[in-house]
């Protein structure tokens, strides 16, 4: 049994069958990069995993527990859905920070609201909130933004904003952290700082799925690379093999058009 499994996930938008039975699995602490040309369904796959979209078919399991099952007929409560969703974190291409909150408050908003659901919240209020603040400070340090804690997103560069977004996702300690082209909205000179943060997380064995066009990065940090084409996984393997000896003509063509 793998740590994380996606079984036969399909998704259509109208008559456009975007995912056509995606099967995929990874182990705890692994880093998997997903590559593929635009429109191949990478974003849709991440959105189905993080349950921003509901897949039409298939199952998603974390540690053997189903977190999504298209065949499930029983209606889940909203809270149960959120609980399952929280197995995953998602970092967006466009950061999507909350503009009206300071960096620190962006990190603390969700954990504080979640903490209210703790049965002993009223008793341990101060303690819980202090823990959250401490964690936020530690994570900010990890992404190198300690001095920016009190600033607002609009005062930061794109690279800094994306690092805040990563920190915000880490606050809820997701089992699997997903990234959708985290550097694609950045100026080229700002991608390095974000990729460095990802490398550091990889060293700490945070389980990550990263959709990326940064081939050099994918090759360096990934335990596994997955190539998507037309809504299926066309080829997968360890980075050296995949980049050196692509088997399918499609991957060969894709790599030929990409600068390493």
């Amino acid at each position: 049994m793998a740590y994380f499994e996606v079984n036969g996930v399909s998704k259509s938008f109208g008559s456009n069958r975007v995912l056509r039975g995606v099967d995929f699995s990874m182990e705890k602490g692994e880093v998997v990069s997903i590559i593929g040309s635009s429109g191949s369904g990478k974003t849709t796959l991440l959105r189905c995993i993080t349950q921003l979209e509901q897949a039409d078919e298939g199952r998603i399991l974390v540690e053997g527990e189903p977190v999504f099952d298209a065949a499930e007929t029983k209606r889940l409560s909203k809270e149960e859905k959120r609980r399952r969703q929280l197995n995953f974190g998602l970092v967006f291409q466009q950061f999507n920070l909350f503009p009206q909150y300071s960096v620190l408050d962006n990190l603390m908003l969700a954990p504080r609201l979640r903490a209210k659901k703790e049965p002993d919240f009223s008793k341990r209020r101060e303690e819980l909130l202090a823990e959250i603040k401490e964690k936020a400070r530690a994570i900010l340090e990890q992404v190198g933004l300690t001095e920016k804690a009190k600033q607002y997103p609009c005062e930061l560069s794109g690279g800094q904003q994306q690092r805040v977004a990563i920190a915000r996702a880490l606050m809820l300690s997701p089992k699997i952290l997903c990234f959708d082209e985290p550097t694609s909205a950045l100026d080229p000179e700002l991608t390095g700082e974000v990729l460095q943060v990802l490398k550091n997380l990889a060293k700490e064995h945070i389980t990550m799925m990263i959709v990326t066009h940064e081939m050099k990065f994918a090759r360096e940090v990934s335990d596994k690379v997955v190539f998507m084409a037309d809504g299926v996984i066309a080829e997968e393997g360890d980075p050296e093999t995949l980049f050196q000896n692509p088997r399918s003509p499609r991957l060969k063509a894709f790599l030929a058009n990409t600068t390493l």
Binding site: T50, Q85, F88, F98, L109, A110
Partner: peptide, 20 residues
């Protein structure tokens, strides 16, 4: 994106509306 960021952070619909 604001709605979706709230959702993946486990906020409820009401929290997303009022807090975000």
């Amino acid at each position: 994106g604001q709605q979706e960021a709230g959702q993946v952070l486990g906020l409820t619909g009401g929290q997303i509306f009022f807090r975000v």
